[in-house]
Amino acid sequence: MKGNFPIKLACDFLIAHPETASEYGLKMLLLKIYEHERDGYTEAKKSFILKYTMQAKAEYAIDITPRK
């Protein structure tokens, strides 16, 4: 997979599930907390993105395993 497909997949999932998208506020809070620390922000949001990427993967039956 090229680019940030897993992140795009998670975003598409959140758009399709407004009730889940309300949790996106957590990510925005992390952005404020880690405003000047990109690595800290990336690490803190990782579990959020992973959670919804995995849910989207299951719902859309998509294999997001990187190709070798």
Rank of each mutant, 00 (worst) to 15 (best):
E35T: 10
D12H: 07
K32N: 14
P66T: 03
P6I: 00
N4C: 07
A44P: 01
L50R: 15
K57I: 06
T20K: 14
I15T: 10
Q55V: 03
G25P: 00
P66G: 02
L9S: 01
I62Y: 03
P6Y: 02
A44V: 05
Y41L: 14
G3M: 05
K51E: 00
F5R: 14
D39C: 05
A61D: 15
L50W: 08
K2Y: 10
Q55Y: 05
I62A: 01
L29K: 10
I64T: 11
F13W: 02
C11I: 14
D63N: 15
A61Y: 07
R38H: 11
T65R: 11
Y24Q: 11
K27D: 05
K8N: 14
D12T: 06
M1C: 09
L50C: 08
I7Y: 08
I33A: 13
T42S: 13
L26C: 05
N4T: 04
T20E: 13
T53Y: 02
E59Q: 14
Q55A: 07
P6C: 00
Y24I: 11
M1N: 10
E43M: 04
Q55W: 02
A58M: 05
L50D: 15
I7D: 09
R38D: 12
L26R: 12
D39P: 04
T65H: 04
H36R: 14
L14V: 03
L29T: 06
Y60Q: 06
R67G: 11
A58H: 07
P66C: 07
G40M: 09
R67C: 10
L14C: 04
K45G: 01
A44Q: 03
R38Q: 13
L14A: 01
T53W: 02
T42E: 15
G40R: 10
T65N: 09
F48L: 05
A16K: 10
I15H: 09
L31N: 11
A44T: 01
I49K: 01
